[in-house]
Design a protein around this nucleic acid. Structure first.
Length: 270
DNA sequence: CCGGACTCCTGGGTGC
DNA sequence: TGCACCCAGGAGTCCG
């Protein structure tokens, strides 16, 4: 569910409640997430949060001697609540702070991740092979062009590969390809450097705009206050199959590429 | 190395 | 109201 803008929105919501506070307790109600939640997460108890940040779609909490790692999976969300609030269905774990506020993780599909990392964080198995952040200097059209030479797979799968660039999920991949006029099924190795410049620009542009709107809520994404994001209103192709293209009026098409629904305009995207 | 299929899980929507 | 079926925003792993 959550892509980079939704994870960033979540980070901005929970960060002020965490940084500078000590963790009073970690309560795991259901350890059966994507991987079993390890007992090491209780090492967080009694430690002070030095900082929180995001790498790809992972949220990281620095406790000085390592820390906690959270991934929202497809249906996860974090909410700020009071420690004594009654847990709802699918509320799998709590991080209770000395302020008595509580960061509570809800995840119906249980594809989320909650684990401990030992320093340095970037050497963690889940983080070590990740590509550049799409909103950083390290990301560019040239980077995409270099990495794509010789690749025959669809460009949509290519930009969704976290080893190439992180944080681009199914929604924003479709949006960025539409914005740059590139057909999602085009082989990645058969796109010019100039077109990759346009694509890289579209990726960072759509992600920045989505962050400004608090992310995209299609079905159930909520931020740490329990509110939805508002970028869905600005989507140009995603879930618009059969509706007219905003540029040429041709019907937007839906096609499965790499087992995922892709939306595009067959006349604007080549 | 690359690309594609499969996998984990629950719930919402649809059509009969 | 019930039920079968399809679909879903992620991403690691396995296999050819």
């Amino acid at each position: 569910m959550p892509e980079l803008p939704e994870v960033e929105t979540t980070l901005r919501g929970v960060e002020p409640h965490l940084t500078g506070h000590s963790i009073r307790a970690v309560i795991v109600r259901n350890a059966s997430l994507r991987w079993p939640v390890p007992v090491e997460v209780s090492r967080a108890e009694g430690l002070r949060v030095l900082r929180c940040w995001r790498r790809a779609k992972y949220l990281l909490i620095d406790l000085g001697q390592g820390g906690l790692l959270i991934h929202l999976g497809m249906s996860g969300s974090l909410r700020v609540c009071n420690a004594e609030d009654i847990p709802r269905k699918h509320d799998h774990f709590d991080i209770v702070l000395d302020s008595a506020s509580c960061i509570r993780f809800n995840d119906p599909r249980r594809f989320g991740v909650f684990t401990w990392w030992d320093p340095p964080a970037e050497s963690h198995k889940l983080l070590e092979n990740l590509g550049p952040e799409p909103l950083s200097e390290a990301f560019s059209g040239n980077h995409l062009w270099q990495k794509s030479r010789g690749r025959k797979g669809a460009v949509k799968n290519f930009i969704m590969d976290g080893r190439i660039v992180v944080g681009v999920g199914n929604i924003y991949a479709s949006e960025a390809l539409y914005m740059s006029g590139i057909h999602p099924a085009r082989p990645a190795g058969r796109i010019s450097a100039a077109r990759y410049d346009a694509l890289a620009g579209a990726i960072s542009d759509v992600l920045r705009r989505a962050i400004r709107r608090g992310g995209t809520t299609l079905r159930d994404f909520v931020n740490s206050d329990g509110n939805p994001g508002y970028f869905a209103q600005e989507l140009l192709v995603y879930e618009r199959a059969g509706l007219p293209c905003f540029q040429c009026q041709a019907p937007i098409r839906r096609k499965v590429i790499g087992q995922r629904s892709s939306y595009y305009c067959a006349s604007c995207q080549r």
